[in-house]
Design a protein around this nucleic acid. Sequence first.
DNA 1: TTGTGTCTTGACCGATCGGTCAGTTTGCTT
DNA 2: AAGCAAACTGACCGATCGGTCAAGACACAA
Lengths: 214, 214
Amino acid sequence: MKSTPARTDTDSRHAVEARILTAAEAVFAQHGYRGASLQAIADKASLPKANVLYYMRSKQALYLRLLDRMMRRWNAVLDDITPESDPAQVLSDFIRTKMVLGQRFPEGSKLFAAEILAGAPFLGEYLSGELRLWVEERVRIMRQWSAQGKMDDVDPRWLIFLIWSATQHYTEYSAQIHGVLGQDSLTNADLEAATDFLVGVILKGCGLSAPSGA
Amino acid sequence: MKSTPARTDTDSRHAVEARILTAAEAVFAQHGYRGASLQAIADKASLPKANVLYYMRSKQALYLRLLDRMMRRWNAVLDDITPESDPAQVLSDFIRTKMVLGQRFPEGSKLFAAEILAGAPFLGEYLSGELRLWVEERVRIMRQWSAQGKMDDVDPRWLIFLIWSATQHYTEYSAQIHGVLGQDSLTNADLEAATDFLVGVILKGCGLSAPSGA
DNA sequence: TTGTGTCTTGACCGATCGGTCAGTTTGCTT
DNA sequence: AAGCAAACTGACCGATCGGTCAAGACACAA
């Protein structure tokens, strides 16, 4: 009978799937697609390997699902930008949001990084499709800002790359940061200081002064 | 007989080793330590797998040798910094040198990135030892620059991370950049423009004006 | 030619890979 | 209590993993 599946059923299914996804995200982030093994994921999720394959159809399906989830988390970023916006406010928000996202989803961010490092075999279409349009739209608006004299005449493409790289560094290179600074993890105060530094330097570097509402 | 090994012997040995190292660097960079297979490396070097293991003792020895080679390439960077140096000149050189290094050794840079992403299992000691001292020394000098009023009072740690991340981005995220910009590779003009952008924004962001000798 | 050390390689090892499947357990409906 | 579909899992599959080894191929000195 197809009738209403019991609440507890779907609940537990979601719970188990979430356990698998969390475990898989960490393993894929650490070792990349090829280097990750379903056995390692199953162990981390405390499940038999066959059970992982029962919920996720295959290694590839599991990986694609994680990539998709991570990209949807980024969709909200910098979505309300217009030619009339205050550049300082928008860029400041952009940097801060990116830093927060990296802290909130460190494994997902690393997973994304590993995918790019591997040459984006699964994300190629997304990069040259959806994301490319996203960038072109923001580039267009930023050029208008420059033309209006709201900010220095910098190439928006390099500016976007700068913000991406500078913020992602704190999650993807966390091992290097921890080793170099000699502490197991950055304190919240450190992260806020680093964020303020990035906002300060990048805005000033583009001829902008701190946004009023911050 | 131990006597003078023929010139051609050591020559061909070096040549074969170089072939293997080049192939291995690319494979490790793309798939990480675990994801790389000796078979793939052997194929790329056009050698039987057993021959790869004859020259390099093991997968781990090969990997460590590549890491060591990459780190020695970076040793010369920013080595002549003193409290009396011109900050603008030093930071400008730092950024430009890093960009050039990334272009010269893209596979090695990616290999390094993959190692960090995996949690630096083999480089942990280097990061918390040699590299940490390197950073502390530069931080000390930059703080003096700030105290002398030569530049804004920014935390040198975040500044170093910013330069590392912003420059490395162009090699490690090349797949993303190519996808987003819709071109197979950045032209030299693009790279120079990006470099000038980074120098300009970061220096200005730290309260510095372009160095005289550039 | 013969001896000697290096180089080269196919065959093979146990372990692990992603994935399948048959058989059992479980939880809910009737 | 009976029935049934979903959940679960140990055992197994062929392929590939890193690594070993013994047997040739090769270059060169005596």
